[in-house]
Design a binder for these strands. Sequence first.
DNA 1: CACCATGTTCCTTG
DNA 2: CCAAGGAACATGGT
Length: 283
Amino acid sequence: MPELPEVEVLVRHLEPLLKNKVIQTVIVRREKVVQPTPPPNLTQTLLGSKFLRVQRRGKYLVFTLRQPVARRDYQLLGHLGMTGRMYLAPVSQEPPKHVPVEMHLGKLKFVFEDTRYFGRLTLDLSPLDELGPEPFEALFTGEYLRQALKGCRQAIKVKLLDQSLVAGVGNIYASEALFDAGISPRKAGGRLTVNETRRLAKSIQKVLLKAIKFGSTVPLNLEGSKKRNGLFYYGTAEGASEYYQERLRVYDKAGQACPKCKTPIRRFVQANRSTYHCPRCQR
DNA sequence: CACCATGTTCCTTG
DNA sequence: CCAAGGAACATGGT
C-alpha cells in the first residue's frame, strides 16, 4: 500500500480512530521492523502512552504520543514499505500471518501487518531529515525542480523516486506524472526545460491529488485482507469497481492503448524498476 | 522454475 | 566525496 496518496488516506482514516487511545500492551514479533530502537525500549516507551495525533510526511506516518506520568510528548515513525497495512481490529480477532507489531488499546488493537517486513515502526526519526519538500508546499514549484535538477544526468523517472528531491512520489505516480506532463521518462533530469519542470511540478500535484480524492471518495478496504486487483492497490470494498476504470493511465498498462493517442503503452526497466510510458506522447 | 511486485539501503564501481 | 547502477531485504502471486 504505499505512495503519498495511500499514506495520506490512511492517516486521515487512522487519526480519529487512534486519538486519545491509550496503549495497554505492545507486542513486537519482528525486531527488524522496529530497529534501530531495541524492542524493550520501544515497549517501555509506548506503554501507557496516549495517541495525540497522526500526520504524514512523504510516505511516513508520524504518530505523536504523550506519556502521562513523565508528561512528555514524543513521536513514533511508521513506514509501510511495499506491503504494510495499519488498522484497528477487535482484540479477540485472530491475528493474520505477518504482524510484526501489535498494540492493544482496550477492546481494540492497532495492527501493523506487513508480509514482506520492509516497513518500519520506530522511535528513530532520522529518516525524516533526508526528505525533500512536500509536493503541496509552496516551495515545490517548477523553479525549485529546475534548480534541484541542475547538472543531473540521471533519467528523470529515476530522479523522481529520490525522496530528497520530492517526498512521497513512488514508482506508480512517477510514471503517471511524467505521462501527464508529456515528458520522456528517459530524459536526463538536468535537460528538462523551464517549461517541462513547470509542467512536471503541476502534474505531480495533479496526479497525487487526484489519487487522494479517489481514495477519500471510494469505500476502501484498508485492512486489505482481500487480494488487490491491480486497479487500486490497497483494495476497495464491495461495489466500488465502477470507479476503477480511469484511475491509472499508464502504470501496469503495457500493450493497452494510450488514453491520449491510442499508441500502445510500453514497459521498460530503469534502476531495476518498471517504467510505463507512451512512446508517442512522451518524447 | 521463472519473473514480477507500491520501497529503502547498502555495496560497488567510476 | 559524489553519482550511478545493482543487489539485497522477505514473501507471495501468476
